[in-house]
Design a protein around this nucleic acid. Sequence first.
DNA 1: GGCCAGGACTCAA
DNA 2: TTGAGTCATGGC
Length: 296
Amino acid sequence: MATTLRIKQPENFSFDACLQFLDRGFDECLYHVNGKDVKRLIRLQSGLAFITVSSKEHMLIVEIEKENISQEDKSEVYAYTLDWFDLNRDLNPFYQLLKQHNATQSFPQDYFGLRLMGIVDLYEALCWCVIGQQINLTFAHKIKTRLVHKYGDKLSRDGIEYYCFPEPQTLQNIQRQELVDMQFSKQKINYIINISRAFCQGELHKPELLKLTKEQQMTKLTAIKGIGPWTANYVLMKSLRDMTCIAYGDTGLSSSLHTHFKTDKKPDKKIIDAVFKPFASWESYLNFYLWRSLTD
DNA sequence: GGCCAGGACTCAA
DNA sequence: TTGAGTCATGGC
């Protein structure tokens, strides 16, 4: 059974720019970009759904394949797509700001219509951060793929296997040795189990976190071992959609700031804050665009 | 072969 | 509260 949603694209939106970001050279196991569309398996309240997102005449076309598609399913997929592509945001003020500064004036043209692509699943976002801590991204993708292939829900379609990120219930009681065999460090294993338990025990719950202030969210997240300032800022930006986050301590961000703003190779928080100050309320987007510039 | 990678923790002073 | 040590292994 299949159905199609049509979502009007906002101004300053480029599906191609978003797709290019999704397909920027890493082996990504949670979605497949194939020319002009992106396909993935997502988890709805009522079960798994396979979606294909493409673009046609200023509309996003979302095909849903699932058994017994209900109105609730459609609403969920609609909300998911809005969140994933950050469609409910007017980028005009951000682009105006970028144009006012020499270091960033070319961004609105270079990356026109690129949205801050989200990680809708907070649990996935946190685990992904732990995986990516302090190791290179190529290797990070490699071990994430091993984890997802072993514990994630799967669906085969046209000869390709699509996966959902595993659920906390699955990973909270995992045999540590199995992750060691996948080349996770003991630290990362502990962190992932900590985070999984926090979700299973209800300590972390995205809808509840969304009701809190940014400071409260940071406190709640960093109280869990394995979630430091970098990870907290990353998930606030990518999953909770706070637009004022800066990934302090991020090597890629440091490198990009060095390139565009001529800062030290490892700028401290004070220097970073000074650079970001003129972009107040758009810090997350500037951070994201600076990351994007690394893969040019 | 050595340095670094989308960090975070512990522990000493 | 600051700094050094530790984790761990692939990528280049």
